[in-house]
Every structure is written in structure tokens, then in C-alpha cells.
Amino acid sequence: MRGFLDLGLLKLETTLGKMAVQEITKVQELIYTTRVEDVMATDVIVVDPSMTVAEVKSLMKEKHISGAPVVQDENIIGIVTMTDILAAMEEGRLHEPVTMSMSTKVKTVVRDSVVAEVGNILGLKGSSRLPVVDRNGKLVGIVTTGTVTKYLLRRLDQSFQKNEQERLQAYRASHIFQDIVSDDTSVVLRFVVDDKDFSNAGKASSMIKKALQRLVVNPQIVRRVAVAVYEAEMNLVIHTDVGGEIIVDIRKDKLNVSAVDHGPGIADLKQVLQPGFSTAPEWIRDMGFGAGMGLANIKRVSDMMKLISEPGGGTRLDLVFDLKNS
């Protein structure tokens, strides 16, 4: 296996040039997860045992192949290669049946084995083709170093294109502050959060996190913002009876988050800021929330926090994150 693998990797490395190292380990992943039947060619050119060496020679020339299995009654009885033909020609056996010149020790591979096994056999003897059979030994396809390489290249290209797409989108998004010129450019994201909609809670935070990643904000800051926004979003879901709104204002050097609601408001602001203080109902606690750590968490991860509220007048939470060190 090593022989073929190393050769395969070397070939790929040369072919793909600067493709990232992770793409190369992707090759290893692929050969252990791909089945032979997905890689093999199914239109197998076969040789009938009644054919002469000369006839096989013409067939190979016509079809541009350098070897073929010899098949009788759906069973592989041998394999004939260009080397066998050359030897027969030298010895003047051109008009004898091909069965005299073929090799009868044929290695085959079962269709549902993994591609790594093919590499094992192809590499060992230096043979370049391997008939694929089903569980009953019937010929169903053929694999060559060519079919394997072609398949791997196509799969790598697909994954490369996908990564490239994501990279390009991130590139475009992250350059918005250079591409759009004004005295103060900002990107504003607005999200509506419904109250008591527990199953959708966190969707806004998730989208905000993705947006920031795409804007190539420092990952540590992305994480801090995500934690703060998620806690704020859970507060809107749990504690308001009308839901609220989350607004994220992203500038070149800072990020402002506001969570605004027209809910019942907070009676004692000092009290809600105490770690551990909570008014959450039992069912919320059962779900792992309402431990009274939300605002403490938000305060800890943000660079500035302001909480404005009065009973009956709704609540407004303003956060600032400094992006300068990103």
C-alpha cells in the first residue's frame, strides 16, 4: 500500500501545487472512505479466449488500452497486457490463441472494498489494472491508477472549490470597510427575537457569529460577542412577554450590540446584576438556563455594558466591543 500511496500523494502534490496540506490528508481520508465501485470504470473492455494475440493487439491499439481481462462465461480466466503481447511477438506466437500468452494468476478486488485496498495490490506487483468483481466473482468493472487518480482529483477539486467559495465570501465581506468609503461606515444587522420561542432561541446569535467570522473578526472577540449576544437573546426569550430586537452595529474599530424589549422591565437593577440572582421560572431552569449568571457573563465578556430599565417601560442593554486589537 505504501508504494502506491506515496506515489499517489507525490503525484497529487505535484499536480496540485500549492493546494493546502489539509487537502493532502484529505486524500488519505478519501481512500479509506471511498468504495472501489464508486471509482471503477464500468465499461470494461474484455478479451474473449478465442481471440488470437494479433486480434488482441489490434483491439488494444483501437481502444487505447494497455491490458484487459480475459473472460469466459462471465468468469475471469486471465489477464493480458502489452508486455505479454510484446513477448508473444518476439517469440512469433502472434497467431496463437491469447490464452497461451495471458497470465492466469489474476488478482481481483471486491466491489465494496475501500480504495486503500486497491492501492495495496496495485502497488505491490507494479501492475496497473485490477478487475473488480461482485461477491459471486462476476466481473463488474476495472480500476487503474488512472481511474483512482482521476476520482481523487475530482473530489479534491470539489472540496477545494467549496473552501475557495467560503474564502472568497469572507474576503469580499472583510473588505467592505476598504471598498465602501465614507466618514464612518458601519454594517447593521437587525434580528427580531420572539418571546418564549425556546426552540428558535439562539438563531440570531448564530447568525451574528457567522457574520463576524465572515468579516474576519479576531476569533476570540467573535467568541466573546457570541456569548454575550446569546445570553442577551435568552433573556429576551425567557423574561419578556413580547420578545424584542437585537441590533448589531459593526464598525471598523468597534462593535455595538443593543438588545431592546418592551417587556415588563426590571425593578431593581442592582439586584439583577448580582451573580446568581434569578427570577426565571422552574421550566427554564430545567432547561439549563436562569442560573442568574447571564448578565454577569455579558459584563465579563464585553468591553462596556449599560443596562437601562424601569418597571413597565421595557429594557435596553447596550454593549460595546473593541475591535482595534483584531
Binding site: A226, M293, A296
Partner: peptide, 30 residues
């Protein structure tokens, strides 16, 4: 307690929990 996870969770870590609601996954994401 998901707030504890948000407070003390570190990137890449494994979280052991007895909760199974989707918010556990959201919390992990954040």
C-alpha cells in the same frame, strides 16, 4: 447550567451534560 458553560467553557473542549435540549448545542456553538 448553560450559563456556566458560557462563562467557563474553553474552545475545543468536551462538554459533559445531562441536558439534551437543542440549546445545549447552541451553547456549545457560542
Amino acid at each position: 447550567l448553560m450559563s456556566d458553560v458560557l462563562a467557563f467553557g474553553s474552545p475545543g473542549m468536551a462538554l459533559l451534560t445531562g441536558l439534551t435540549n437543542p440549546q445545549v448545542v447552541r451553547t456549545a456553538e457560542m
